[in-house]
Design a binder for these strands. Structure first.
Length: 573
DNA sequence: CGAGAGACTTGGAAGAATGTTA
DNA sequence: TAACATTCTTCCAAGTCTCTCG
């Protein structure tokens, strides 16, 4: 129904006619969101117990109970806030009779329901091949039908074409709303956006859309308001789409423009450290942090609505400690705060003396919970940046510093003499330098210690094999020494070849172990996907003859198709 | 101009698919 | 070929930044 795909690739895809200012598309046609299936009641023999006695729940109450039951062994359910929020919202959904009975969460027994879902999961996994195949085909059919749209004549993949299922809200960190009920999205909640003359998507049988609009100044296909934070959610295009790709390209072009003026900007904020206006001084110190440490801007947040996290402009006095002297360094600032997603930022940095002096000044006569930059807002900072360079905002510094770091590190670390594995280690190390700069962390994988041990054992085994092979070579050589016959000579060659192969394998394993260890707590994905100009990587691959598949998987290659298309080996960020 | 709405990017974790090993 | 580990993909929360409105 949506017509034939145009495929990706093809020349000229990244340069098409200019659109009017603010206009994002001329044609947009799609099927609307795919609605997740409605709730299916539990079988009769799967029971909920209250105070030790089975209790048959109404459909709505049962559905909410299953949300909790599914998470029963998750750490979330041990948290008091989670329990309270859940219980509060659950009770709101109960009939008055149920409300009369169910008054204490501790008396609720979800274990049988939990067990049921665990078994369902296992049953699904144990399904025969053909059954699995059938399910796969059904999913593919939905993907085919709802997963694509037509935008300006191109068939484009949609990122999230399904509505989010109802469930319990899982915030990150100490989120005050964790455990609250996330409501089911109905067609009546959904606003559709498409082009006026397109085939307007049909709402599901018996339903209607909240609204249909024809706004080509935005890129979303559908939207709804979620009930936890009362904010909008959107259905948008996949990163592989032309629309997103061009935006991505543009982002890196802005960052490249910063490269030309960054020296001047740095000189200016150094001058501003001495400004008579406190506001300017705070701005200059904050900008120094944003530039040097790749901190996020740090918008103000509504207190009590979200986890207590901060960025640069929202740092509080309690988040830094000043050490005139520390570990042989001067003017050390010790940062310790929770950033985005409640990821801890901990860093000790030696700063320039005027910065240190200014910080002392900003902290004077303040409580720990007072804002460090009390005269500064992100709006004020960004206004200033906009004035320094068209399109410049705080986040551009993160993009710029990330990309320039990758480029420099690749230059410094890549040894042309290395084999592919060695070069890839260098690439990962360059990537890692960026991830560390941006504080992209992950929790240590559960199996880390074990798999590290397995790898170490492999290395030990391989070492022994290498030693044995060395002796074999020696033996063969001795024999050749004695006999001087052709057969013995051939044998020497054979043993040497074997040794060489084993040594290579050992080297590869050692590289693997190094890479793994260094990567223990570092998440490379975010920087790779969002901060590193892909043209740097493409150029590096071309220059050193590394196949692009070794650094980008299929999804990443699709997202970065524009860069793979356009970057030559001499690309400079 | 300041708060809130809106649109879009960025983020780690969980779940699914795939690869490897005993 | 089952069990386990690794990689890929999906999920959806949480940021940034601009725009709008009183």
């Amino acid at each position: 129904p949506l017509g034939l795909g145009m495929g990706s690739g093809g020349c000229g895809r990244w340069e098409e006619e200019k659109k009017e200012d603010g206009v994002k598309w001329m044609q947009l046609e799609h099927r609307g969101p795919y609605f997740v299936p409605l709730y299916e009641p539990l079988p009769e023999d799967v029971q909920f117990y209250y105070d030790g006695k089975p209790l048959k729940l109404s459909l709505a109450t049962e559905e909410i109970a299953t949300f909790y039951a599914k998470m029963l062994h998750h750490e979330y359910t041990t948290k008091e806030i989670f329990q309270n929020n859940f219980f509060h919202d659950w009770r709101k959904g109960m009939t008055s009779e149920e409300q009369e009975i169910i008054k204490d969460l501790d008396k609720c027994d979800f274990r049988e329901i939990h067990k049921y879902f665990v078994e369902q999961n296992e049953a699904r996994k144990a399904l025969p091949k053909e059954e699995k195949q059938k399910l796969k085909e059904e999913a593919d059919k939905i993907q085919e039908e709802y997963g694509y749209c037509i935008l300006d004549g191109h068939r484009e993949k949609i990122a999230n074409f399904k509505t989010e299922p109802p469930g319990l809200f899982r915030g990150r960190g100490e989120h005050p709303k964790m455990g609250m009920l996330k409501k089911r999205i109905m067609p009546e909640d959904v606003t559709i956006n498409c082009s006026r003359d397109s085939k307007i998507p049909e709402p599901p049988e018996g339903h209607k859309w909240k609204e249909v609009r024809f706004d080509n100044t935005v890129t979303w296909l559908a939207s709804w308001t979620e009930n936890i934070n009362n904010s909008l959610k959107y259905i948008m295009l996949n990163p592989s789409s032309k629309l997103k790709g061009e935006k991505d390209w543009q982002k890196y072009e802005v960052a490249r423009r910063l490269k030309d003026v960054v020296h001047e900007i740095r000189a200016q904020y150094r001058r501003d450290w001495k400004s008579k206006e406190i506001k300017k001084r705070q701005r200059a110190v904050a900008l120094y942090f944003i530039d040097k440490l790749a901190l996020r801007a740090g918008n103000e947040k509504e207190e009590g609505e979200t986890a207590d996290t901060v960025g640069c402009c929202s740092l509080r006095v309690e988040h830094i400690q000043l050490h005139p002297q520390l570990d042989g360094q001067e003017h050390v600032v010790e940062f310790d705060f929770l950033g985005k997603d409640s990821i801890r930022y901990y860093n000790k940095v030696s700063v320039e003396k005027p910065v240190f002096r200014n910080l002392q000044l900003f902290m004077k006569n303040k409580d720990p919970t007072d804002d460090l930059f009390d005269h500064l807002t992100t709006t004020f900072l960004n206004k200033h940046l906009q004035h320094l360079m068209d399109g410049l905002t705080a986040k551009v510094f993160r993009t710029y510093n990330a990309s320039i770091t990758l480029q420099e590190q690749l230059k410094a670390l890549t040894n042309p003499e290395d084999n592919v594995a060695g070069k890839l280690l260098s690439y990962n190390r360059a990537n890692r330098a960026v991830a560390i700069l941006c504080n992209h962390q992950r929790s240590i994988p559960k199996t880390f210690a074990k798999s590290m041990q397995v790898l170490q054992e492999k290395i030990d085994t391989k070492k022994k094999q290498v030693e044995e092979a060395q002796e074999e070579v020696k033996k063969a050589e001795d024999e050749y020494e004695d006999t001087k016959d052709a057969k013995a000579e051939a044998n020497v060659e054979k043993k040497k070849k074997l040794l060489k192969r084993l040594e290579e394998q050992l080297a590869k394993l050692n590289i693997q172990a190094t890479d793994k260890e260094e990567n223990k707590q570092i998440a490379l994905g975010t920087s790779k996907l969002n901060y590193l100009d892909p043209r740097i990587s493409v150029a590096w691959c071309k220059k050193f003859g590394i196949p692009i598949e070794r650094i980008y998987n299929k999804t990443q290659r699709e997202k970065f198709a524009w860069a793979i298309d356009m970057a030559g080996e001499d690309f400079e960020f």
